[in-house]
Amino acid sequence: MSFNFSELAFLGVPQKTITLDNIRAVVEGDDTRRIAFASSHAGALKKTDGNHGKIVLPFNDTIGVFIHAEIGRDVNLFSSKFRGFWRAINSEEEFERFEAFIEKYRDVVFLRDNLDLSIALSMNFEDDEEHTEIGDLEYRAKFQNDAVAEAELSKRCAEWIERLPYYKHARYICAVPGERGVKNLPARIVSTLDAFGFDDISQHVYWQNKTRKIKNAESVDEKLEILDDSCLAIDNDIDLKGASVILFDDLYMSGLTMQYLAMKLKERGASRVLGLSIVKSRKNK
């Protein structure tokens, strides 16, 4: 088997194994599932007495890879005996680099799941009533068929793919499928991202028998049963062996569907699946 040299760009991204048990553990667990510097983790970086500061985070998934790419390969977060991860910052230069990192990713949401990388561009709500800026665009594009909002979302997604480490080097991009034969919002936005040279496989990944919606299910096992019964198909002429895939959705809630799809893509040979969602809901259900 020949080596896929395009995957050299992803050597800094550890590969995860996805199983149904792993998905259940994440979705049913009570561990913190997101890092959002604009809200819940605004105080993650602090000045401290005796040194220049410290950063404390609830998990290392995705954000640890981004820190390596943006701040330095030798800048590691360490596991805390009190749960979570932390790093003592012993120079003003490093503190400023962390400040710049947090400013760049202020609105981005880092997600804890079984994908190799997983982020949303924003939360969907500032609070229980007011949308974030991107949350408002997503709502208008999805529920009001606002073409201007959809075009702006496409522009924002392209800008972020260009700015993010790793994502623009993916070989494939795939929208999370909706109803068969319907080009949903994720698929429409993916179709505008051709400037990056991705192979769009959205039309080749689809549900063959989707008759029930998982949002109506009461348990994780019932939701997984619905996904299994929906019979995901990946066309045989799509060669995923050793390839990296961006899996794109508009709204990330529990992440169960995205993780299930990533598992199926990996079963077909994908080496890494990078999750990219427009917004993250305030709740995980």
Rank of each mutant, 00 (worst) to 15 (best):
G12R: 04
P14N: 11
P14Y: 10
P14R: 08
Q15M: 14
K16R: 12
L20N: 09
D21C: 09
I23L: 11
R24A: 09
A25S: 15
D30I: 10
D30T: 12
T32D: 11
R34L: 10
R34T: 08
F37D: 04
A38S: 14
A42H: 15
G43Y: 09
A44I: 06
L45I: 07
K46C: 10
K47Q: 14
T48N: 06
T48D: 07
G50Y: 11
I55N: 06
L57P: 02
P58V: 00
F59H: 05
F59T: 00
I63T: 05
H68A: 10
E70I: 03
G72V: 04
G72D: 08
R73A: 13
D74L: 12
D74Y: 09
V75L: 07
N76T: 11
N76R: 15
L77W: 00
L77M: 07
F78M: 10
F78L: 12
F82A: 11
R83L: 06
R83I: 06
F85R: 01
F85K: 03
F85G: 02
R87C: 05
I89A: 06
I89R: 03
E92L: 14
E92M: 14
E92Y: 14
R97W: 07
F98H: 03
F101M: 07
I102H: 01
E103A: 12
E103W: 06
R106H: 13
V108H: 04
V108S: 01
V109W: 02
V109G: 02
F110Q: 00
F110A: 02
D113C: 10
N114F: 07
D116E: 10
D116I: 05
D116G: 04
D116P: 08
L117M: 08
S122R: 04
